[in-house]
Design a protein around this nucleic acid. Structure first.
Lengths: 233, 233
DNA sequence: TGAATTTAGATTGTCGACAATTAATAACGT
DNA sequence: ACGTTATTAATTGTCGACAATCTAAATTCA
C-alpha cells in the first residue's frame, strides 16, 4: 500500500457544519482504505469515534452514498463499497464518456490563460516527476490536477459536479488502493501533452478522442494491478 | 400545464420507510410543479404537511438533492431547483453523452428477446398514439419506457443508476413543466425505430450516434418551448 | 441430529427538544 | 432621512431517547 498524506480535499468544499467535517474525514479514510472496503458501518460505533451524534453521522453517510463510497439498505445499514473488477469497468465506461465530453467542451470554452496554466502545470509535473521518482502521491495529485482543470474548463456546472464531486472519489479509491506507480508515468505525460495541444487548437473532436483513449489506457493499467492483486490472494 | 396522473414512480423503488414515502411524494410534486421551482422549502412547514418529523423530512431532502431536484446551503436551507435555459443545455449535454454510451452498450448486451420487446413496445405506442391524439401523458410515458429499456439494456449498473435514478427526474421536470406535446411525435417515432434497428444489428457506433442526435432534437424541442414560455412573461 | 420457531440482543428509523446560525425588525446615531 | 448597529424571531444543525426492524442465538419439535 502506498503512503498517502494530506490534502485529500480536492473538490473545494467549505467545511461549516459538523457533518461536513465527518463527511470529509470519513471520505478520506474510505478512499485510503483505513476504513476497509466492503466493511459494515456501525452507526453507534462511528458516531462515538468521531464524537458526534448519530443524526450528524447519518447526514455524512448520506453524502458518502451520493458519491458512491457507501451503499445503504433500508433497516439494514451502510456498507463501504466493494472494489470489484466489474464495477471498475462500469465506472470507467461512464468516466470515459463524461470526461470525453468535458474535454470536447473545454476545447471550445477554456480561456487562453487557462490553457497556458495547464501547460505550465504539465511542465512542473515533468520536473517534479524526475526528481521524485517513484513517489506515487505527487503523480496522483498531478494527474488529478490536470484532469480537474480540463473538467472545469468545460464550464458545464452539472458535468463538473458529476465528475469532481460524485465520481472522482470512487476513482481515487481504486487508484490509491491498487497502488498507482508503475511505468505508465511517461506515457501518460505524452498523452496529456497531446490533449493540451488539441484543446489549444480548439479541436474538440480530437481532444475528446484523445481523452477517451487516455482514460481507457488508465483503466487497462488499473485492471492489471487489480488482476495482480486478486491473483496474490 | 398538461395533466399528469399516477405512476410517476418509474424507477423501481420499494417503499419501506417513512422517508421513502415522503421522498417519492415530494419528488412527484416537484416534478409536476405542485411545489414550484425556485421556491424555498421550510422544513417545519413541510414536515407538518407530510405528518412526519423533521429528521424524516431531512432524510427525504437529502435524497432529493442527490437527484438534483433541490439545492442546499449550509445554515440557510433548501430550495427547489430553478429551471433555466443554461441548466437545460448542461443537463442535455450530459444526458446525450451518457445515453449515447448506454445505447452503444445496449447494442452489444441486449438479449434478442429484449430487442423484440422493445419493438413491440414501439408498435403499441404507434397505435395508442393514433387513438389518443394530443394526450401528452401517454407520449411522455411511452418515450420514457423506450429510453429506460435501452438504458437497462446496457447492463451497466452504474450507468443505469446515474440515468434512471439521478438524472431522469430532472429531465422529466423540464418536460412536464414545459408541456410536451407538439408535432415531434411522429418524428420521434421514426428516430426510435432507427435506433432499434441499429441495436438489432449490433451496430453500437451507429446506435450511439442516432441516440445522441435523437436527444439533441429533443433538447431543441424543449428549448423552443422554453423560449416561448419565457417570452410570454 | 437437523430444521424450524421463538426469543433475545443489537441496529436502524423516527421523534421532540435544545443549541447555533441566519434573516428580519427595531433602535440608534450622524 | 438614511445608513449602521442591536435585538428579536425564525430556521437550521445537533442531540439523546424511544419505537420498529433485523440479525443471531437459544429453544423446540420432528
Amino acid at each position: 500500500m502506498t503512503e498517502q498524506k494530506a490534502n485529500d480535499n480536492y473538490n473545494d468544499i467549505t467545511i461549516t457544519t459538523a457533518s461536513d467535517q465527518v463527511f470529509v474525514d470519513m471520505r478520506r479514510e474510505i478512499v485510503q482504505g483505513t476504513i476497509e472496503q466492503g466493511s459494515k458501518i456501525s452507526e453507534p460505533e462511528l458516531a462515538k469515534r468521531y464524537g458526534v451524534s448519530r443524526a450528524t453521522l447519518r447526514e455524512a453517510l448520506n453524502r458518502l452514498e451520493s458519491c458512491y463510497l457507501v451503499e445503504r439498505k433500508a433497516n439494514v445499514g451502510c456498507r463501504v463499497v466493494a472494489l470489484t473488477a466489474e464495477r471498475l469497468i462500469e465506472v470507467y465506461q461512464v468516466r470515459s464518456a463524461l470526461e470525453g465530453l468535458a474535454c470536447r467542451l473545454a476545447a471550445d470554452n477554456m480561456e487562453p490563460q487557462e490553457v497556458q496554466g495547464l501547460k505550465q502545470l504539465l511542465n512542473q509535473h515533468l520536473q517534479t516527476q524526475r526528481v521524485k521518482e517513484g513517489e506515487s502521491y505527487y503523480q496522483e495529485a498531478g494527474d488529478l490536477d490536470f484532469h480537474y482543470r480540463i473538467i472545469k474548463g468545460s464550464k458545464n456546472a452539472h458535468l463538473i459536479h458529476l465528475l469532481c464531486n460524485e465520481l472522482y472519489q470512487l476513482i481515487r479509491m481504486y487508484r490509491v488502493q491498487m497502488g498507482m506507480a508503475g511505468p505508465r508515468v511517461s506515457k501518460a505525460f505524452d498523452e496529456h501533452l497531446a490533449i493540451i495541444n488539441a484543446i489549444e487548437n480548439h479541436d474538440g473532436e480530437l481532444a475528446e478522442m484523445l481523452m477517451k483513449r487516455h482514460i481507457s489506457a488508465s483503466q487497462a493499467n488499473i485492471q492489471t494491478k487489480f488482476d495482480l492483486h486478486a491473483a496474490k490472494k
